[in-house]
Design a protein around this nucleic acid. Structure first.
Lengths: 343, 343
DNA sequence: ATCGGATGCGCAAACGTTAGCGCATAGGCT
DNA sequence: AGCCTATGCGCTAACGTTTGCGCATCCGAT
């Protein structure tokens, strides 16, 4: 009944159990151990089984650095994360951690937040030999892009349009915002306001265009445009402006290009004594968990985050295996989630 | 005017510039390069300067894996991150990334979220030879603890009490919630509700106790206790219960042990037609940026996050340098931030 | 009996850095 | 002039894995 986990069962000198420890135990070459452990069929099935058992018994753990040094592959994905003011990035990180782990990869956080990325920081990509890079920041930091390109490190942007030397996976922003527009138009709304981000991200622009195109198709006049930071505060400020409009000029529907901003709008309206579905419809985009809070009850388009991360990792892994693959952009359709805020 | 950044200036064969590339260029031993680059004073100042210049010229980037393999130090900090439902962890991550980078270290995200951590995942700690571990999860995942302890990897818990084989840095929860209690008592509030987390984290318990002790000191009866998940939803549910109380039994102040929960409480009250400072005071704990939103305007105790992360990294680095250092717990005082929600 | 090809594994050279010794050279001291 | 201590580097052996070859052995086919 030796049920103990393989806790240094026979590594007496406190030295790590390595591939040669095993090789000496069992009387085969280290290379055989290495191959057996990764399932190389050139090694007979029974030898592989014996080796697997031995490794288990001795609590063998591969040494990632040694593998990296020898093979050039680190199993690490460099991540540049967007600002904390948008919970979307938080969800994205969590999903990425989970899925990467399932594929045997880990996330190395290179940079997080809004600030510019320093060159020194970007060098970590090289130092740690990341196999690929996941970027969700507003813009592909130039130095990171250069470093990756110069070293053949594949880059995938998530929720951003592709730049030079990068693939990308996004939500179908145009289609999504068109759906929102059509929903509102179908309700008879005709006076629109559009709350956008001042830093014109590709995502924001696409949502803007998709929405406005749908309005144009119906011959509805262009919406009132308000710009602000992509955060609750940005939306809040826009909401205050909207609330301050003379009653006659008030829109009957407002589309904020991100859920956080929409939440800000709602809060601002409320503080001005206006209410989300009653005085005007408010819709957002992203599908944050927060948008479902009863207090917001926000109609939005939910980005298919798990699928997006999955595709992003697919793209990355494909390009790790074959560096010559051309850049690719995939866009996935989101799901319109109709809640109370749209009336 | 050769202003180009050191972009493979002379690495013709696409081979990485290594320490021996440099050593051959300049005619010294590789070991000398290594020592010079890390400022070893045994190398003359002028040689060091020459080498530094050469390295710059050739765009030399150290190979982290090689260093790790040889020296045993990876420059990596393993991170276990709490659930995405509490923005506190997001802020913590951002701060940690920034400060770690400033100290030349990177964050390897081992696990994120509420789910249990798998053994395989924990093994990444060993594989990548992390120098230390930062844990903010609710409880120290047992396997992670075991792995770290067995391999002498220092562990620091943040916002959690220390477990066996770990140091910790927390906010002074008792003092903070006492301050909140005294603030409310000073206003004449006497009927209290306490919204707690059902999973009894050390943090939650301490805040509970600090608050109740202060009440007891004033001879005020024990508060009504409501338990829920540590999220907006948990707080929301508690808020609904409070709102549903007969008017005579309603508290005149509620303390939610975290800001997210307090936000949930406020939203629930509001949906029931009650309002935060008017019908009862609501206070939280953490000092989230979200708490400052005009819509919440939440009185809270702000955890000194930058200082906490700083101390956590201090503890970690000290224990990397000297593994024999005893575990240490430091608690830092937060700052009472009085806003509108407390009336 | 001989040959040809699988099948199964071993050899040894990388990968880039670090660190324990050890060996010169130079200068100051007696 | 000889000895001693710095000062400044070089040698070399790790660190643990991977991988391109290459070499046996064994099987069946000729």
């Amino acid at each position: 009944m030796k049920d103990l986990p393989p806790k240094e069962p026979a590594a007496p000198e406190g030295r790590r159990t390595t591939i040669v420890t095993l090789s000496r135990q069992i009387g085969v070459a280290p290379s055989t151990i290495s191959r057996a452990l990764k399932g190389d069929t050139r090694i007979s099935a029974e030898t592989r089984a014996r080796i697997a058992r031995l490794a288990q018994e001795w609590g063998y753990t591969p040494h990632a650095s040694a593998r990296t040094l020898s093979s050039g592959r680190s199993g690490l994905i460099g991540v540049v994360l967007g600002p904390p003011t948008n919970p979307f990035y938080t969800g994205l990180l969590h999903e990425a951690v989970r899925q990467a782990a399932a594929r045997g990869m880990r996330l190395l956080v290179i940079h997080a937040g809004a600030g510019a990325i320093e060159d020194m920081t970007a060098d970590a990509l090289l130092q740690y030999q990341v196999d690929g890079c996941l970027i969700t920041s507003v813009e592909l930091p130039s130095h990171v892009g250069a470093v990756c390109a110069a070293n053949g490190v594949p880059v995938v942007m998530v929720n951003r349009v592709a730049r030079l030397n990068s693939s990308a996976v996004t939500c179908d922003n145009r289609f999504g915002s068109r759906q929102l527009a059509e929903l509102l138009l179908g309700q008879g709304r005709r006076r629109f306001a559009l709350v956008r981000t001042s830093t014109s991200s590709s995502t924001g622009q696409e949502r803007d265009q998709g929405f406005c195109d749908a309005l144009a198709d119906m011959g509805v006049e262009r919406p009132l445009r308000l710009d602000g930071r992509s955060s609750h505060q940005g939306g809040f400020a826009a909401g205050q402006q909207i609330a301050a409009l003379p009653v006659g000029e008030r829109p009957d529907a407002v589309f904020a290009v991100s859920d956080v901003m929409a939440m800000g709008v709602i809060d601002a309206l409320r503080m001005a004594g206006l209410s989300a579905p009653r005085d005007m419809a408010v819709v957002g985009f992203d599908g944050l968990p927060e948008a479902a809070w009863p207090h917001y009850d926000l109609t939005t388009v939910e980005q298919p985050l798990p699928a997006m991360i999955g595709r992003a990792l697919d793209l990355l892994q494909a390009r790790m295996a074959d560096r010559s693959l051309p850049d690719e952009t995939v866009s996935l359709r989101g799901r319109l989630v109709v809640r109370g805020s749209s009336g």
